[in-house]
Design a protein around this nucleic acid. Structure first.
Lengths: 234, 234
DNA sequence: AGAATGAATTAGACACGTCTAAAGAAAAGG
DNA sequence: CCTTTTCTTTAGACGTGTCTAATTCATTCT
């Protein structure tokens, strides 16, 4: 009933709840930017409202109901991000904060209109899957973060899991966008990775922390890719 | 700092504050659907925050700061209404509630993008003026509510000040939309007015309460109207 | 196992926005 | 002008969401 705040907590728990582990209150507190007692209080109420399984000192886990609301919110978020880029001229670095607010306030009707206008899209501007209207999420099984590849690998950018405008602007500047073809030049042991963008021949380095948020698939010249201009391999 | 609720109160006070009269707390309470003590408490805080002039038992009046925020919110509201009709396929009867929520949450950047996409519009889907980016409101001096006209008058619909979806749907059904040409058939003394829509020849009656929310201008065949199909007078 | 450490919870507070019940001020009516 | 009515305010409460300080629980280390 408290919609916006509860949705934020549910989104956070959903994100932290990789597989069926219990999520620690401290992790939620850090992710939400609040103090631990605030989390305890919220978990109690969300448990009373049936959004999470929670017993003291046992951490929290989404119920079916909680997961449903988390995914509904995530669908709103990603549809809005795409809407802002496609229809309002936003850059992918600008959409997160705006969508993070609006996701709580658009009606189901508006959600449906936006989805229809965009042609029932499946991925947002960062390459993340948009939950379907019945809240299924299709994970891209083939992708891995770019730091998992060997030097010399040729890869295609499929998703960037970083909301920081600065990082996204930097990536845009060096030519890293969805569908871009990258070559892994060097993977240094001290946490630095050097990449080259095929299109521009720009070469640049990233801390592996950032590289781990760039997801790619092995380049396959025979695959049906829209990046036709990259099909001649270096 | 409390943005959404304060904006709602400021919008209400702005609407009630016809000319420079003090607005009575009871009027605000009725309009906002809350109890009088709630209004007293809010007025105190809004006064402390500089949004209204308020002293006990004296009613409230917007300060320059309060009016600015009210008009900013009104601009958001009307831009959103137009955006929803123009871009998302909403009907004029559907936009009010959605805009009433979203108006509090769109950023200045999004406001600007929407305004640009719509070509810097001056009126919303109900014909109400959209405050400009520097928050000036151009009132249509020529318009009057349709119940002010004599029988036989030929008028053009310029604004409908009613948010009820039922009323708006009914008006759509009988052909009353912005720019429609109406003839005043009968003004009954017991509060009923009968109109005929020029385009469809549909004739219908309205309680004068509803008629008083339909604003029109005297039809002038020489005026630069887009309703060219109505130029042959009955 | 007992002690130290760290995480989680309880206790108590506060601002917001709302309520009901009661008291006080202003306006209207005789 | 005094009384009655109506409007407004005060008093006290509650749920939400947050905090700090203190306590309790769980875990880890010697």
């Amino acid at each position: 009933m408290v919609i916006p705040k509860v949705e934020d907590y549910l989104k956070t728990i959903h994100r932290l709840q990789d597989r069926d582990t219990q999520v620690a209150p401290s992790a939620i507190a850090t992710a939400m930017g609040v103090q631990p007692p605030t989390v305890t209080a919220m978990l109690k109420r969300m448990h009373d409202d049936g959004f999470v399984d929670y017993e003291r000192y046992q951490g929290a886990r989404l119920t079916t109901r909680g997961e449903k609301l988390a995914l509904e919110t995530l669908r709103h978020h990603r549809l809005l991000e795409l809407f802002l880029t496609e229809q309002l001229g936003y850059d992918w670095s600008e959409v997160h904060d705006e969508a993070d607010v609006l996701e709580h306030y658009i009606s189901e009707k508006l959600e449906a209109r936006i989805a229809a206008l965009l042609g029932f899209p499946t991925v947002d501007p960062h390459g993340a899957p948009i939950p379907t209207v019945d809240l299924k999420v299709r994970h891209d099984a083939g992708q891995q973060s770019v730091d998992q590849f060997d030097e010399g690998s040729l890869v295609v950018v499929s998703e960037v899991r970083d909301n920081s405008p600065d990082v996204l602007d930097y990536l845009t500047e060096v030519g890293v966008r969805l569908g871009a073809l990258l070559k892994v030049i060097e993977v240094a042991p001290f946490g630095m990775i050097t990449l080259k963008v095929r299109e521009t021949d720009d070469q640049f380095s990233l801390p592996s922390e950032t590289a781990s948020s760039i997801f790619v698939t092995q380049f396959d010249a025979t695959s049906t890719s829209e990046s036709g201009q990259f099909s001649e391999v270096h």
